[in-house]
Lab assay of single mutants.
Amino acid sequence: KPRVVLAPEEKEALKRAYQQKPYPSPKTIEDLATQLNLKTSTVINWFHNYRSRIRR
């Protein structure tokens, strides 16, 4: 699969959402995906990867 490249404003929106709730509910994930015009799997993976990046 080709890698999804996020626009800077999409990254900022995801980071703001992460600061509010690092483990978002499925509803929140769905809303974010719709709002940013991304797949839910992309949003889920971003949160998973961002949490692991923060832990390093």
Rank of each mutant, 00 (worst) to 15 (best):
E30D: 04
P8I: 15
I29G: 07
A13C: 11
K27A: 05
E10Y: 01
P26C: 15
L36R: 02
R55T: 08
A17D: 06
P2Q: 14
R53N: 07
P22V: 04
S25D: 15
R56D: 06
S41C: 06
T34R: 11
R16D: 05
R51G: 07
Q20A: 10
Y18K: 10
L14R: 07
W46L: 01
R3W: 06
S52A: 11
S41F: 03
T40G: 06
E10K: 11
P22S: 07
Q35H: 04
N37D: 04
F47N: 08
P24D: 02
R55H: 12
A7S: 11
R16E: 09
R51P: 00
R53M: 12
V4H: 07
Y23C: 13
R3L: 08
W46F: 07
K39C: 07
R16Q: 10
K11C: 08
L38S: 08
I54V: 15
Q20K: 13
W46A: 00
S25R: 09
P2N: 15
L38W: 06
P26D: 07
E9S: 09
Q20C: 08
K11H: 09
I29D: 01
N49D: 05
L14I: 07
W46G: 00
N45D: 09
P8F: 08
K11L: 15
L14M: 10
T40W: 14
V43H: 00
L14S: 04
I54N: 09
E10V: 14
S25P: 05
P2L: 13
A13M: 13
N49E: 12
V5W: 04
E9Y: 01
L32R: 01
L36Y: 03
A33L: 11
A7W: 00
L14P: 08
K1G: 01
T42W: 06
P24L: 08
K27S: 10
W46T: 01
T34P: 00
P8N: 10
T42P: 00
A17C: 08
E10A: 14
H48C: 03
Y50R: 04
S52F: 04
I29S: 02
K1W: 01
N45Q: 10
W46R: 00
R56E: 15
A7K: 15
K15V: 11
W46N: 00
L36Q: 08
R55D: 06
R3E: 15
Y18E: 09
A17L: 09
A33T: 08
L36S: 01
I29E: 00
A7R: 10
P26T: 14
V43R: 01
T28R: 13
V4C: 13
E9H: 15
L6Q: 07
P2T: 15
S41Y: 02
Q20W: 11
K15Q: 02
I29H: 10
K1F: 07
A7H: 14
L14A: 05
R56P: 08
I44Y: 03
K21T: 14
W46Q: 00
P26V: 10
R56L: 08
V4L: 07
H48I: 10
T42F: 09
K39A: 12
S25Y: 05
P8D: 00
L32F: 02
S41M: 14
A33M: 15
L14F: 01
E10Q: 15
N37T: 08
K21D: 15
W46H: 00
Y23I: 07
K15P: 03
E12M: 09
K15N: 05
W46D: 00
E12R: 03
Q35W: 11
Y18C: 06
Q35Y: 11
E30K: 13
K27W: 05
V4K: 05
K39R: 09
N45M: 07
E30V: 10
K39W: 13
L32A: 03
E9Q: 14
I29F: 08
S41L: 02
A13G: 05
E10G: 02
E12Q: 12
T40L: 12
P8L: 05
S52N: 12
V43C: 01
R3H: 06
K39Q: 07
P2C: 12
T42S: 08
F47H: 00
Y18V: 10
R53P: 04
K27G: 06
T28E: 15
P24T: 06
Q19G: 11
S25C: 08
P8M: 08
R16S: 10
K15T: 09
L38V: 05
K21Y: 13
R53E: 13
R51Q: 05
E30Q: 12
P26Y: 12
V4N: 04
Q20L: 09
R55W: 12
N45G: 07
Q19K: 11
L32H: 01
Q35K: 13
Y50C: 09
I29V: 13
D31P: 03
E9K: 13
R53C: 09
F47A: 04
V4W: 01
W46P: 00
A7M: 14
